[in-house]
Amino acid sequence: MKQFTYTITDPVGIHARPAGMLAKAAKAVDSTVTIAKADGKSAVATKLMALMGLGIKQGETVTVTIEGGNEDASAAAMEQFFKDNL
């Protein structure tokens, strides 16, 4: 299992469009990616509506967990995705 934290800088947070992009990115890796908020609520990153349901806003810090598959490659890809898009 690998983990990293990230603070959202996108002014709209993880809304529909960014959530769609995130779900797409999470589907592209061979590991299970989970996003958790500080209050403990979490969602599997490939589930678009569950992601949107978290209502993650700018300035919030999320914990991203990567399990199974090639964890190193998946973690690197997800970290890059967050930096570029969120």
Binding site: A16, R17, A19, G20, M21, K24, K47, L48, M49
Partner: peptide, 15 residues
């Protein structure tokens, strides 16, 4: 992206 997001809604596991 709007339409792509709509397409993803359709395939969303929970939905």
């Amino acid at each position: 992206m709007l339409f792509e997001t709509h397409a993803m809604f359709i395939e969303d596991e929970d939905f």
